[in-house]
Write a protein that binds this DNA or RNA. Sequence first.
DNA 1: CCAGCCATGTGGTCCGACCACTACGGCTGG
DNA 2: CCAGCCGTAGTGGTCGGACCACATGGCTGG
Lengths: 243, 243
Amino acid sequence: MDETLAKETESAESPPQKGTVTQRAIERIKAMIGEGRLEPGQRLPTERDLAAQLGISRSSMREAIRALTVLGVLEARHGSGIYVTQLEAGDLLETFGVVADLSRGPRLVELLEVRRILESTATALAAARITPDQLAEVEEHLAAMNATDDPEEIIAHDLAFHRAIAMAAGNETMAAILEGLSSRTFRARVWRGYQEEGAFERTRREHAAIHRALVAHDPEAARAAAAAHVGEVEEWLRSQLAT
Amino acid sequence: MDETLAKETESAESPPQKGTVTQRAIERIKAMIGEGRLEPGQRLPTERDLAAQLGISRSSMREAIRALTVLGVLEARHGSGIYVTQLEAGDLLETFGVVADLSRGPRLVELLEVRRILESTATALAAARITPDQLAEVEEHLAAMNATDDPEEIIAHDLAFHRAIAMAAGNETMAAILEGLSSRTFRARVWRGYQEEGAFERTRREHAAIHRALVAHDPEAARAAAAAHVGEVEEWLRSQLAT
DNA sequence: CCAGCCATGTGGTCCGACCACTACGGCTGG
DNA sequence: CCAGCCGTAGTGGTCGGACCACATGGCTGG
């Protein structure tokens, strides 16, 4: 019954001891992926095997896996196994939405400032590169947004409108960041108050301006229109804070 | 064998059933913070109490806590308790570094493109707003970087140089994002090859140009210098990919 | 030959025990 | 009386095992 000594014999480990066991496991797996020993889409060993390999309990290994799961690095399929995600921008930047959801006050303005910078550049790039097909999708959402007065639907198409433009800019990473910066709950929180001031008409005009610039393939006009569009919301939010 | 009915009797729960128990716990805690029921810095109930409150096991609750910990929302202090972080930009955007570390190939270029856009704007803002104290810190790192030839130290001061500028721009969120975009391992990976081409001299000149623009409080010059600085690395990396 | 069942293996959940560390308060010695 | 030590209760961290829910693929029976 004296299994106490069994622990001492394991002293031949490489990393002496730093941080919690789970934290080390997270780093180990991250390193495996970083070094290319685990390819995107590849299936990992079972939780039980992984735990055995790293010499930790299954509980700790599960915490490590859960952590990497919320980070968008791993994906667990019940009954099937654990897989490495495609490690695409969308996978890894999903957590960005959490930042937007939990930010308040001054930080919301900072977030919008970042969005203004990125969105204006993305829209300018889109104006130069957008294809007829992509332009058609943008127009589709623009029309759908003007055809309804259900706030939910308006927000959804507003989001899709900007997403389509970001995609046309040809930088998936930027598109994913902007997606997070405009996450559903974030928009809902801001729009509630913003729309009460009859800002919908102004929004419609601003969207039309952006659309015109895209059709004309005029990057500078697109940049200005997009910056003004986000800037409007930004200024309104700034004024709200002063209250 | 008919233990099937035992499940049906539990129908008196608030959330019917969606996703895993742990996932629900994560959302619940996130919601508590979002609704303001948990203030930054506040201490949470013990793991055991929290698990009991949500009607789940301690194991599942621990996974939820671990998930929120890696997201920078919670902080667990061994022997003391679990606390909500200050929810500042730095806390929540720490995970951004993971994206940079795990990205490869074309995505690295996209990442640098985002950085170029943000860094150039941040540097322009800094040129307009920087105070003598902040400028002194920038110069300190600039001098330290030129005074040594230890690659590790150079990278460290290079990072600090840009961080100081981002801080001077007055947008902590942007600074935190840029910090993640220039994470240690990310820089190390790129620099290894970049410096081999004797790019250090060019880097030094570019930093000097940025510094001059800051001293002159010339936003446009600062924007151009910063964009060129990041653009150089970007172009080099792009050429590497073509190989 | 094919549909449907079932054995197997996987992640998901729970339990209970113990360890490592912190914090706090009482106790001791000056 | 006070300072400092020390014990103790309480917390997060780790472990091992058991069982459940689900996915898969082979097998069986038609």
